[in-house]
């Protein structure tokens, strides 16, 4: 039963962050929300008995890809 409740909480968090990532006006907040989607998804993978996938998603999805988004956003702001 605890697994079910945990899954529901994590699923709702993933969806909430995904909606913020699309509708929020500031691009920086949207990028951070997209990183948070990956972070909550990685906890969800851990609940679903996939530790390998959880590690990859935490290191790549919410770490490196957020930073790459920020590098590109910063470069675009300099040129503007």
């Amino acid at each position: 039963m605890t697994t079910v409740i945990l899954t529901i909480i994590l699923g709702v968090m993933v969806l909430a962050m995904a909606i913020i990532a699309i509708v929020h006006k500031k691009t920086i907040t949207a990028i951070l929300a997209a990183g948070a989607v990956s972070l909550f998804a990685s906890i969800l993978y851990l609940v679903l008995a996939a530790p390998d996938v959880a590690m990859t998603e935490a290191a790549i999805g919410s770490g490196l890809s957020t930073v790459i988004f920020f590098y590109v956003l910063n470069k675009i702001r300099q040129d503007a």
Binding site: V14, A21, I22, T27, V37, E57, S65, F69, I76
Partner: peptide, 16 residues
Amino acid sequence: IRMIIGFSLFDTGIHI
């Protein structure tokens, strides 16, 4: 950039 965020969400959804 916002479209690329959409693509990366699409990715995450398929993985889930």
